[in-house]
Nucleic acid binder design. Structure first.
Lengths: 339, 339
DNA sequence: TTGAAAGCGCTAACAA
DNA sequence: TTGTTAGCGCTTTCAA
């Protein structure tokens, strides 16, 4: 790592280059007021010593060049997409990404976000956090925050969110168009759908309830746990009985995959039960799966969130809000109701 | 997040508690030699101010309580599993995880690892890094390192690795047992399979070549790019011709999924072409996929790597090496050769 | 058992 | 244009 048997410091570079520490600092920050000659000598010394600034020391005086992202557990491939996009947007910038996964617990989101703040991140993106918005607002006054996936509007933080209102409508009306009336909605726990949190599943659930009521149909809401296996088990329970629904609107693709698996297990085909998911994760389009779903680009959302975050760090003042438009992708898992 | 309009510092806590900064430091570190009374008062002040130690400041004097993990891009769900396991192993410890994704480029691995080192991580796990082992050895003399997925042995860093030798043998002999002889191996680029790097794909390729030669069969190695779409396209090219192989051993499940998709596209069934993957990602067991593959637990490997890392940070001196045993999971994508 | 003080590597205000 | 200097918040001797 260097000739010295320990990482080189700015002091070492200054000594070798025969200049002051401040001069070195200016060179590495591309600050104003350094002569070409000085830049030259300092750069040479940096190369010679293989010097790398200590992020910790820099963080104490200003930036850590680290961005934080808080996400729900990675059981859902959609979040992997978001991460992918976020990571891609970082390429070529000076920032690194630190990830704090939060499970579903009441306190989990706070824990994860605090861990990020403790690490002096220069900004952070929170993915559908199960957190009171006042808390987030307060956080956002201290450092740039981008909220991804929730619908609540804020004057303090930027937002990237899909139009779940529209997406859910697309999904449900698709099933209605296929003549289904006994449509169940399989979604996550009560906590995850609390309307006040503005999370996507709360919105999708509300749209479901509204449309069913509108049409005079009976709402049929089922809940399931966080893992993919939970979804499978809940689906078995839902479908293994004579009065089963003829269609299921799953809150997201990972749940829909569990439904499909349960159907195969029970010997049910799309002619028996239609399934629609949400997200359009990659595997949904695989011929063996053929899941009808609502496409939204996690990669784009993740990348946009990071770009917005960097804009803010770089000084943008006004709050921005990006709403992406989902679209229905009909595949083989949804069929017209027989007879 | 405190009464002061700025984050509380150790100084603030000391003032409120009426003690010295050193005393506070001792309390938060559970250090030796603090009276119950002192502990009491300090804790009260900490709670009152909602004090959280600055990770940056601590990092300058000692630990950052941050672990780094360097992984290939997340296009492969197997890495998501590893991350899951790693994150799970962190729960209840004081550590956070910082992730540095590295794409396939020559310099990418170094870049990612350096970003981690710059951030003063207390230790790091490198997932199949495309990095010279001498470089890693040198790194490992400066901080604890766990290498996950590579086969090269080191006296400096711990290792968690699957027995790819056995796994590949299981996969290929399974196809041989099904009477296949025209078996192609679809793997990643030359760079990824360089034997000197000790990566899993290099080993699987070597085993493939050895077995084919042993049996007097013709080796048929195809290469593909990093994305899932690359795999699909390469598979189309491989299978869309009369002299196609009767079986494909894919270097990992994500590639195998591309092959399956290509087959569906070309109207081919498992009776025409058998496919075996590697990793047993979750979707492989889905009824619509039914991919025969070699199971290895990414979750376990990721968790083990983090546990070993923490052990080392806590003082273990001797190097450890954990080798996991893979097992074949036969599903519907592989069939006995017809006539 | 407690506290004073030095210093980790860097940045930024100010002086030269 | 360059250098001097005063901290940032913490840990860690070393004395008291």
């Amino acid at each position: 790592m260097s000739q010295l048997g320990r990482p080189a410091t700015i002091e070492d570079v200054a000594r070798i280059a025969g200049v002051s520490r401040a001069a070195v600092s200016k060179v590495i920050r591309n600050a104003y007021g350094v002569s070409p000659g000085m830049r030259e000598r300092v750069s040479a010394a940096i190369d010679e010593l293989d010097y790398r600034p200590s992020v910790a020391a820099r963080a104490m005086r200003g930036s850590s060049f680290t961005l934080g992202i808080e996400t729900p557990g990675s059981a859902n491939h959609f979040f992997a997409k978001i991460l992918d996009g976020a990571a891609a947007a970082l390429v070529g910038t000076r920032y690194q990404l630190i990830i704090a996964p939060a499970e579903d617990g009441e306190r989990e989101g706070y824990r994860a976000l605090e861990a990020l703040v403790d690490r002096q991140v220069d900004g952070l993106v929170a993915v559908s956090p199960l957190i009171a918005s006042e808390w987030l607002e307060r956080l956002a006054t201290r450092l740039p925050v981008v909220m991804l996936g929730r619908h609540d509007e804020s004057v303090a933080y930027d937002t990237v969110v899909g139009n779940d209102e529209l997406g859910a409508r697309l999904a449900i009306e698709h099933l209605l168009d296929l003549a289904h009336t006994r449509i169940a909605h399989l979604t996550r726990s009560e906590f995850v759908t609390i309307p006040a949190l503005g999370g996507p599943h709360g919105v999708r659930l509300a749209v479901y309830n509204a449309i069913m009521q509108e049409r005079g149909l009976e709402a049929w809401v089922c809940r399931t746990g966080p893992t993919n296996h939970d979804a499978y088990e809940s689906a078995i329970e839902l479908l293994d009985r004579p009065d089963r629904p003829s269609a299921v609107f799953a809150a997201h693709d990972q749940i829909a995959l569990g439904v499909l698996k349960a159907m195969a297990e029970l010997g049910l085909t799309p002619d028996d039960v239609s399934v629609v998911g949400y997200d359009d994760v990659e595997i949904a389009s695989h011929p063996g799966i053929g899941l009808t779903t609502v496409n939204q680009s996690g990669t784009f959302m993740g990348a946009t969130a990071v770009e917005m975050l960097i804009e803010r760090i770089d000084g943008r003042k006004e709050v921005r809000r990006v709403v992406t438009t989902p679209r229905l992708v009909a595949r083989t898992s949804s069929r017209r109701l027989k007879n």
